[in-house]
Amino acid sequence: MKFTRRAFIALSAFIGLAVVSSILFMRQKFFGKNPFGDRLKKILKSPNYKSDTFQNLSPTSVTLENASYLKMMREFINKPKDASPPKPLPSVKTDLKSLKSDKPTIVWFGHSSYLIKSKNINILIDPVLSGSVSPIALFGGKSFKGSDIYDANELPDIDMLFLSHDHYDHLDYKTIVKLMPRVKKFYVALGVGSHLEFWGVEPERIVELDWWDVHKVADDIEVIGAPARHFSGRSLARGKTLWSAFILNIHGYKIFMGGDSGYDTHFKEIGDKYGPFDIVMLENGQYGAEWPYIHMFPEQTAQAAIDLGAKLLLPVHWGKFILANHGWNEPINRLVAAAKKSNLPITTPMIGEPVIIGESLPDKIWWNI
């Protein structure tokens, strides 16, 4: 697609109309609701909430100070030819409701959504199963062909559902509404519960965690909120809810669920306090030169895993949506190379293919299609 001045003006007008429309319909359920009342009072006491917004541990801008928005818009329009796979993705259709698990078993659904089964406990992370990641079609690409092999109804009843932050590619209204009746408890970053309550989840089913908060679930299950370097917001307002990673100690295993994060010293701090980890799920994709602090480049993902003391890395946040300007399989190719160079164990399952800690670790290069 050739980018002309006329096309740019037309697109700008269309984007402006889309933004105005989104503001006009901000009260719709899809957008959720920012914290208020007692929840806001709790947030105001958080050491991570300053100047009317949540803050990262290190000063962090969403984009570089000198980033060209015109350049970013041009790149957004003129995506590389390999931004999408040339044909439907291969996958494995596992029967999730009859999945057996003596050891923690992870089934990835593409992007940052995955199921963990440990003995009789079903754990779901950042489920997005509606095929889109934006309230405005212009900004949210559809999922890749072949990546949507599961519907919410095919998932088992969920004991623990984790939400790392409130961006649309991690907190999906349509998916949550479908799953809501079958979720025992929601474990979310501080403030995210406001969206859930607005959608009909009872307060007693929501556990909100600030960074370093520890929550005992059972004698052999513990959840800890952990820092991440990112931002939040489902509207024009940013930073009203927190963004987090989660540490899950379950049945004698240590699992790190990373959410979205740029690279920083917090990975080493988490590793020193709570590592080493039997498996870590870390973002690997949707990075860009203009926003280097809020997402990691693949080589940084490998280093973050090393900082955490990872015995095994499972890369997520790729393989389903176009949210950046790199080739669709560039992140995984770069990460595999970086992991090999660092002797970092990595597993690369197809969507739906089980990873069993200490037993089954798929590593086939399936993405060169």
Rank of each mutant, 00 (worst) to 15 (best):
A18E: 08
D220R: 01
K81L: 07
Y150S: 03
L163H: 00
N56I: 06
I176V: 11
K340G: 13
I250G: 01
N343I: 05
N122K: 07
I357F: 04
F36H: 10
S21C: 02
K87C: 12
R39V: 14
K50F: 07
G327C: 09
D278W: 12
K42G: 09
Y263P: 11
K311F: 03
H165R: 03
I125V: 15
W211S: 02
L196M: 06
L361N: 05
L282S: 06
Y253W: 03
L196P: 00
I106Q: 01
Q55R: 10
A67E: 00
S98V: 12
V201F: 05
F36M: 04
I357A: 02
A226Y: 02
D159I: 03
Y274S: 07
S132P: 00
W199V: 04
I294Y: 08
W318E: 09
H170L: 13
V217M: 09
R229I: 15
E299L: 12
G319H: 11
F76S: 07
V188N: 03
E204I: 04
I346H: 04
G225D: 04
G140M: 08
V183K: 10
T94A: 10
I206G: 03
G37F: 13
S194K: 09
S12G: 11
R182D: 01
P354M: 14
L17S: 14
H167T: 14
K103S: 09
I77L: 04
A245S: 15
Y173R: 01
D169A: 12
G259Y: 12
K79F: 03
S134Y: 08
S164I: 08
P127N: 10
H215P: 00
L171N: 07
A324C: 13
A189T: 02
K87E: 13
I306Q: 04
K117L: 03
K50S: 05
G288M: 08
H295L: 10
G225N: 03
I294F: 08
F162H: 01
M180S: 01
L313A: 00
S130C: 01
A337K: 15
M257V: 08
S147A: 15
D307C: 10
I351F: 05
G309A: 02
S21H: 04
P298L: 12
Y69G: 13
G285H: 14
V177P: 10
E353M: 05
P362K: 12
V355Q: 06
K87L: 13
S134L: 06
L161F: 00
H317T: 11
V92Q: 07
S147D: 13
S143L: 08
A304Y: 02
G309V: 00
P203W: 12
R74F: 14
S61Y: 11
I270P: 04
R27E: 11
K93A: 05
I123L: 06
S164E: 11
L335R: 09
I279H: 00
H167A: 11
G191L: 13
K42F: 10
E65C: 05
A310L: 04
I279D: 02
R27G: 13
I270T: 09
G141T: 14
P298S: 12
A226P: 03
A18D: 08
I221G: 02
F198S: 11
Y274L: 14
K184N: 05
S143I: 13
G239Q: 06
F321V: 02
K50A: 05
H170N: 11
T53H: 04
D38L: 14
D363E: 10
T94I: 08
S164W: 09
